[in-house]
Simulated assay, not measured.
Amino acid sequence: MTRQTKQKKETAPGPVPDDPKKVAFQQKQGETVHEALARSGIDPSVVALTAIGGYQVTVPKEHLHFSALQTALDQQSAAVQAGDFSRPEAMLTVHAHTLDAVFHNLLIRAQRSMDAGHNAAAETFMRMALKAQSQCRTSIEALAEIKFPKSATFIRQTNIAQQQQVNNGAAPAAGPTARPQEKNVTPTNELLEATHGERLDTGTTSKAGGSNPQLETVGAVKRAKK
């Protein structure tokens, strides 16, 4: 067998298996058998086949065809990717009703166990009932998020101030001449003359004021010439 013939044989599409328990996979153009098997092994639909086949009870296991189930799963995935969420919405609604039924069933079991004096069993059933109720609420919240998604809020302004003062008082009067309210605060490193009515000491002798008439200017001091 030549190398070209061997390559054509590897890239040939795989036949659909007659065994209902086998999964059919199709090779893409230029894809080897090992590459096709690796791609199918991580495909979400293929991975879910075993779990669905083991847990579902609507179709007998001997009549469940894995290849047909894979096709149905691929169709549902394609519908969601196209924006059709009708099937997930129906699933969440059914899950909420099912979990609500589980909650009431466990609640009744807890009540019967409590009446019979089996407090430990009653506590176990009560815990399981509350878990089912919590999962029911989660399913309803997920359904509401799909039906009514929350709108995102984008804030373009960035506040990088380390110290910020928030004034919760009355808003200033509106108008073109309105000025924002300011707090009269004199920093410790600001000159006194920057504030109205306050001046620094100029170093000259000031005259006696009228408030203290008994005070007089100090006379000249007699000192030696040398």
Rank of each mutant, 00 (worst) to 15 (best):
L191K: 09
A78Y: 01
K225D: 13
T204V: 09
N119Y: 08
T98F: 14
D74A: 03
P176T: 08
P60N: 01
A174T: 15
P213D: 00
D18S: 14
T58N: 08
A132K: 03
Y55M: 14
R127E: 08
K9V: 02
V59P: 07
I155M: 10
G210S: 05
N105S: 13
I42T: 13
R112W: 01
H104N: 06
R3I: 04
M126R: 13
A68Q: 11
P187W: 01
L64K: 01
I140S: 13
Q214F: 11
F66I: 01
I155N: 15
K9C: 02
G83L: 11
L192W: 07
E141S: 06
A96H: 00
T186M: 12
L107W: 11
S211H: 07
K6M: 14
P176C: 04
G117T: 01
A38C: 09
E10I: 00
L37M: 12
E10L: 10
V166I: 15
A194V: 13
V16I: 13
L191P: 14
T153F: 10
D115M: 02
G83T: 06
D84M: 09
Q135G: 15
A78W: 00
K207Y: 11
E123D: 15
A110H: 00
A72M: 08
R199G: 07
A72D: 09
G203E: 00
A220L: 14
L215A: 06
L37R: 09
R199A: 14
L200K: 03
A142W: 10
H34R: 05
Q75I: 10
S86W: 01
S211A: 08
Q7G: 06
G30K: 03
E190F: 14
D115A: 11
M1Q: 06
V59S: 03
D201K: 08
N212P: 02
F154P: 09
P149S: 02
A116Q: 14
Q56S: 00
L69S: 05
Q26R: 08
H65I: 08
P176I: 11
P15W: 03
R127K: 12
T50Y: 03
H118I: 01
A173L: 04
L215M: 04
L192R: 07
L107H: 10
P17R: 09
T217S: 02
V47C: 02
H97W: 05
K9M: 04
T202A: 08
E62Y: 07
N168E: 03
A170V: 14
A208E: 10
T58H: 12
M114G: 15
T202G: 07
T32N: 04
Q165I: 09
H104C: 02
D84H: 07
D201S: 09
P176W: 05
Q162N: 11
L107Q: 10
T124A: 11
S40L: 06
D18Y: 07
A120Q: 11
E35T: 13
A78L: 03
I140P: 04
A129Y: 02
